[in-house]
Amino acid sequence: MSEQARKAAAVVAQKVPGFRPRVGITLGSGLGALAERVEDATVVDFGELPGFPRPSVEGHHGRLVLGRLGGQDVACLQGRVHLYEGHPPQAVVPLVRTLRLLGCETYFATNAAGALDPDAVPGQLMLINDHINMQGGNPLVGHNDESFGPRFPAMDGAYDAQHLATLRRVADDLGLPVREGVYLATLGPSFESHAEVRAFGRLGANAVGMSTVPEVIVARHCGLRCAAVSVLTNLAAGLSDEVLSHEQTLHYGQAAAEDLTRLVLGFLAAQGTAG
């Protein structure tokens, strides 16, 4: 996996010589439109990058978009892969490590998730401040490459406190009514049962989805500072009368895309001020 990341980074270096992105961004279901805002963009299909598996889910294009966004040099993963597609947890390793090798210091994940709080509103944003891994696997299982990180990386502070403070401040300045909480990742692809939703709430989770956690584990292992935002596309099963579907996820993801874009652009602009 490490060698694939090095080869992928070499491909990018050939296409965009001297380009050193500071922030790597993953765009989740229905949220890929943010990549269209990247200026002076160079687009590389995942198929051109060693170790990059092609997403098979609608709303995930499978492209790496490199350029300028919010005053920062960025590398956007327009689409991600999920364990429920049949990939092992280790499939995310080359994607995240490539971002690190390209020069990224921050990893910013976005996703679509179901809200576990009954007072949440579909289309609202939630800042992630911690996670619970219920996917039954870990992307760091197997040989450890010490050049990226230690055998036993800590996950306290997985979501950077300074980045969280910046997101809160930007949301407040923009008048965005964001929530904040714990994201729980399941394997999928089935949505949760009513009993599972009740159990997840008792565990302390505020939203449930099928991604992000493996990426954050890999990102923290290799020293990236992490931030993550969920678009709450629905209330979880049993909390409303609405029937859950992927179409619903895409609909509310697209509806919230403008709010997410404003939040991400504000965050990137703040990083420029801080740096």
Rank of each mutant, 00 (worst) to 15 (best):
L265V: 15
G24S: 12
E3T: 13
D117N: 13
L232H: 04
V231N: 04
V65E: 01
D117P: 03
A199R: 06
A154T: 15
A91C: 13
G47A: 15
A165G: 13
R151K: 14
G136P: 03
A257N: 01
E146V: 14
Q124C: 07
V182F: 09
T186M: 15
R97G: 04
Y252W: 15
G24P: 07
L260K: 01
R225M: 12
V213Y: 07
Y252F: 15
Q78M: 13
G62C: 11
K7T: 03
A236I: 03
C226T: 13
P94C: 05
V96A: 11
L265E: 13
A185R: 04
Y183A: 11
R168F: 09
F200H: 10
G24K: 08
N129P: 00
F108P: 02
I25L: 15
L34N: 01
L203R: 06
P88W: 12
F52L: 15
A236F: 03
V43F: 07
L260F: 04
V38S: 00
L263K: 02
A35R: 01
G114Y: 03
G253F: 02
T249W: 09
A161D: 11
G201Q: 13
P150W: 15
L224Q: 06
A270H: 11
E36K: 12
P89V: 11
A113V: 09
R6L: 04
L187F: 14
L235H: 02
G272I: 11
T261G: 04
L167S: 01
A120F: 05
S245K: 15
V231F: 05
N111M: 10
L83G: 00
E192P: 09
G137T: 03
E258D: 15
R37C: 10
S240Q: 00
A199D: 04
M155F: 10
A109E: 04
G266F: 09
A185H: 04
A219N: 08
L224Y: 07
